[in-house]
């Protein structure tokens, strides 16, 4: 099981990415900006979008955000549970399943959900949750089991209950690693959600897939550009939060 570690502490730098990417994203979403940029390239016609691009972006963001919330709600308790002493076997199972989730192609997970849930956003959401769980659970397990034994012992010695140890010691100490996992999860899910358009989930994958089937490269470029900007934006923002959490603990 590989886990993403928190961003290495660097010398304080201007978080230019956290400003540049969302600014570019908003700029591209202004009506008429993208067609004006892309039409001169003579790759195809881009007219008015129906639904408009900002709606697609919001759908995309909504899918990613919703899956992120579910992933946290499921993944954190799971990670906490399997890192309690005496839960070695379930932890190994969780690690194996999570590793499996990481290995099985995203697209296969999404597609396998279709026979069960039908078309639309539901199979995509399920796929996003399954795939998003991977980094969150593996990082949370890593972070929680990496808490120094001595610190926990001291907390016990001070008379903290198991809950107090979890809330006041383990979770705060593991927070940077958990946040790093959430960041990876969310950023990957922006990508996974684009593929979800093939299942009728909407979102920014829609122009890409429509463009591909209509041989309209300009349309493809629109979707690709916006989804890339969305991924970079979220990556930069979550990186900012992660770094702040890293400084606090």
């Amino acid at each position: 099981m590989t886990a993403t570690l928190p961003a290495r502490k660097r010398r304080a730098r201007l978080p230019w990415g956290a400003l540049l990417w969302p600014a570019l994203l908003l700029l591209c979403l202004l009506p008429g900006v993208l067609p004006a940029l892309i039409n001169p390239l003579n790759l195809g016609e881009v007219g008015a979008f129906d639904p408009p691009l900002w709606r697609l972006t919001l759908t995309h963001l909504g899918l990613v955000a919703l899956s992120g919330v579910v992933v946290l709600a499921l993944g954190l308790p799971l990670a906490v549970a399997v890192t309690r002493p005496g839960w070695d076997a379930p932890r190994q199972l969780a690690e194996t399943l999570v590793g499996l989730g990481q290995t099985v192609p995203t697209f296969a997970i999404l597609a396998l959900a279709v026979p069960a849930l039908g078309f639309g956003w539901a199979p995509t959401l399920l796929g996003l949750i399954v795939y998003g769980l991977v980094p969150v659970v593996s990082n949370a397990v890593l972070g929680l089991s990496g808490v120094d034994r001595g610190v926990l012992d001291a907390a016990r010695g001070m008379g903290m209950t198991a809950w107090q140890r979890l809330w006041r010691v383990e979770l705060p100490l593991a927070r940077p690693v958990i946040l790093a996992g959430l960041r990876t999860s969310v950023v990957y899910n922006v990508g996974t959600a684009t593929v979800g358009a093939a299942l009728g989930a909407g979102g920014l994958g829609e122009p890409i897939i429509n463009g591909l089937s209509q041989q309209n490269t300009a349309l493809v470029l629109c979707g690709a550009l916006l989804s890339a900007l969305l991924a970079l934006t979220l990556d930069a923002w979550l990186g900012l939060i992660e770094r702040r959490a890293g400084q606090m603990s």
Binding site: V190, G191, V195, I208, T217, L221, S227, A231
Partner: peptide, 20 residues
Amino acid sequence: NAVQTLPSLALLGLLIAPLS
């Protein structure tokens, strides 16, 4: 790391234009 941030479908899409 930056390139890995990009959605794979977006990367595929972005490459179509320059290659064609």
